[in-house]
């Protein structure tokens, strides 16, 4: 398991290649990359705050839970914080398993839990000002399916 919380950019392609090299023998690798999307052309950047003492541990616990539910050959989570411009990569998740079902489900599980159980808070900066992104009920509901 690799968990990295950083302000620096990362190269999702290079990370995926390195991850693929580490899980030699796995038959399936799934990856997801989250990108700062433009909201109706008005977003200039996203500011992500986190709880440094808690973040990596909280993510590691989520990954451990995924490893206990699915048969995984490996898991990678990278999540950034700080100021991110529109189009920038926010985070990525990669999972590897013998067959694809485990890798797909574990990746979705990780995404659902990272969204509402990892201590990050997003603020949108627009031309008109700034606003904290509100957690959506759907995100909380998404945990119920696991």
């Amino acid at each position: 398991m690799t968990v990295r919380v950083q302000s620096d950019e990362f190269d999702a392609g290079a990370e995926l290649n390195a991850f693929t090299g580490e899980v030699a023998g796995a038959g399936a690798i799934v990856s997801f990359t989250g990108v700062v999307r433009d909201v109706d052309g008005g977003l200039t950047a996203m500011e992500i705050e986190h709880y440094p003492a808690m973040t990596e541990r909280a993510i590691a616990k989520i990954v451990e839970e995924a490893q206990s539910r699915w048969s995984l050959a490996g898991a990678l989570v990278i999540h950034r914080y700080g100021r991110l411009e529109t189009g920038a990569q926010i985070m990525m998740v990669a999972t590897a398993s013998r067959h694809r079902v485990d890798a797909f489900q574990a990746a979705e599980f990780l995404m659902d839990y990272l969204k509402s159980r990892a201590p990050f808070w997003k603020k949108e900066l627009t031309k008109d000002g700034e606003a904290w992104v509100e957690a959506r009920d759907e995100d909380e509901d998404a945990l119920g399916r696991w």
């Binding site: 709880y51 969204k115 159980r117 201590p119 990050f120 997003k122 904290w132 509100e134 957690a135």
Partner: peptide, 9 residues
């Protein structure tokens, strides 16, 4: 620590 519901991912 006190904070609003998290918005990671």
């Amino acid at each position: 620590a006190f904070f609003p519901p998290m918005t990671g991912g």
